[in-house]
Design a protein around this nucleic acid. Structure first.
Lengths: 150, 150
DNA sequence: TCAAGCTTGATGCAGTTGCATAAAAACGTA
DNA sequence: TACGTTTTTATGCAACTGCATCAAGCTTGA
């Protein structure tokens, strides 16, 4: 049984950090340059648009996005203040609420997408063949499953 | 010529974000649980220990670590306040300074290493064979080179 | 040599995150 | 039902980040 990380493992770890950092910051800069909200906002809007009219409970969004509870709570505050989402009372559960995307929110997401897509293409797609991208995402998917599993 | 990211590219992108987020937060929790400083501190201390007696100029550290200037400046403040590094005047350049790790700093780095190593092993090493880790880091290395190149 | 421009580093301010904790509703169970 | 526990959400506070800007020193070139 392995006890210590090998050189190879450490290199993979380090590069995972670096690649993500570089890729993320290039996307964030692209969004900022286009005077659009940051990436998390996009992700929230996308999740909510997929969820449809019903919306999502904060705790569902929290799990879908791997965000801390206190963090999501205030993120939703900010997005709500910009008018892209609404909080509605939740019939089933008096503590809860449902977060629903507004039309403004849908428009904003659609407006962000081309910028985001171009940035992904520039950061990742341009450099990897379909085969490489596939191998990469398969390995990362495997890793993610383990990490989520515990 | 490719213009839009394919499904595969998007999946790779998303998973890169997710895997990093999960892996990083597991490491940070492990360090916090052991009442040790966060990962950036480790990275700074490691860079400085490698640099030896001479230390490094802030701008060198900044580039090595892909950190924003204003960010590094205050990070070094904090680490200095804890006594793990020293700022020394720089002979060649009146604007500049040299950041040098102290003995306390070296001790702290050594104390952090086993916790960090165990966390890397748990987050990455345990789940990937040497061959897989190697493939992963090769692909990420390739990507990083492109991203740094512009 | 000296002014214009570049590089290095710090800092005020606003926005964001993490942590601890609180409050309210739901749930389980005796 | 009533009481302790768990779940869901919010929030005060401190730490950290990003942005814009500043000040000081270096470099260049007429």
């Amino acid at each position: 049984m392995k006890e210590n990380p090998t050189e190879t493992t450490i290199r993979a770890w380090t590069r995972l950090m670096t690649a993500q950092q570089l890729a993320l910051s290039s996307i964030e800069h692209a969004l900022k340059a286009a005077e659009l909200p940051s990436l998390v906002w996009y992700d929230v809007l996308l999740e909510l648009e997929r969820a449809g009219e019903t919306g999502l409970r904060p705790f569902e969004l929290e799990r879908a996005m791997l965000l801390a509870q206190y963090n999501l709570s205030r993120l939703v505050d900010r997005i709500e203040r910009s008018g892209y989402v609404e909080r509605r009372a939740c019939a089933d559960d008096g503590r809860g609420q449902l977060i629903v995307i507004t039309d403004r929110g849908k428009n904003m997401r659609r407006k962000m997408w081309p910028v985001y897509a171009r940035a992904i293409e520039a950061a990742v797609g341009r450099h990897l063949s379909a085969r490489q991208a596939d191998t990469l995402s398969e390995m990362l998917g495997y890793l993610i499953d383990r990490l989520k599993g515990g």
